[in-house]
Amino acid sequence: MALNIKIIPVTPYEQNCTLLWDDETNEAVLTDLGGNAAEIWHIIQKKHLNLKEIWLTHGHLDHVGGVVAMRELTDTPVIGPHCDDLFLLEDLSNKTREYAKYGFEFSTNFLPTRWLNEGEVLSVGQYEFSVLHIPGHTPGHVVFYCEREKLLIAGDVLFKESIGRTDFPRGNTQDLHHGIRTKLYRLPENVVVIPGHRETTTIGHEKIYNPYVRAE
């Protein structure tokens, strides 16, 4: 019995879409489906998984741009992010059209099946993930933490020795630093962090080596 993890880089920005599944129940979720929907659907079918939900950390196009295409293949509920990212989802068609020159697929706008708030709990099979709201990169950014597996799906909040940009519309550096220090850095040091881009890290490593936000 285990929680299986497959990180699938998608879009020209190589965003880490993550496929999580319980190998006892074959129930699966996708986090941050930014693109490559047909390819990912093929992986899910090949593994004979039951896709329960799509979870979104925030509304940037490289994290949500494949949702509409996936829902044309399978009518899967879309959960999150926090409602403060509504303005990003309402502008998705414009953004994907604008970024087509960089190789992004066009997507129409969409709304999630439901928004998320701090303290909610999501599940895939027998594994529960707590929702933490950490604004700063975007106002509605959330992350997903599985205490049982010591696993954090961090989106664009925390990277290996870096943090998310705050120079986008409605970004806020102070909010991002505060959320990392008061919520993420209080998690156990052996928690594995899957960021929105690049390689994984741990909470313990970032508390020591992250030059942007050091532990207090």
Rank of each mutant, 00 (worst) to 15 (best):
P77W: 06
P77Y: 13
P77N: 10
G80C: 07
G80E: 11
P81W: 03
H82S: 15
C83N: 05
D84W: 13
D84P: 00
D84Q: 15
L86Y: 10
L86Q: 12
L86I: 09
L88W: 09
L88E: 13
S93M: 04
N94W: 08
K95P: 01
K95R: 15
R97K: 14
E98D: 14
E98F: 15
Y99E: 10
Y99H: 07
A100I: 04
A100H: 10
K101P: 01
Y102K: 14
G103R: 05
F104W: 03
F104E: 06
E105Y: 04
E105V: 11
F106T: 04
F106E: 12
S107W: 05
S107M: 06
N109D: 15
N109V: 07
N109E: 14
F110M: 06
L111W: 06
P112Y: 09
P112T: 09
R114S: 10
R114L: 02
R114I: 01
R114M: 05
W115P: 08
W115F: 15
N117W: 08
N117M: 11
E118L: 08
E118V: 08
E118H: 15
G119Q: 03
V121D: 01
S123P: 02
Q126L: 04
Q126E: 13
Q126N: 11
Q126F: 01
Y127N: 02
Y127K: 01
E128W: 01
E128T: 03
E128A: 07
E128R: 07
E128N: 05
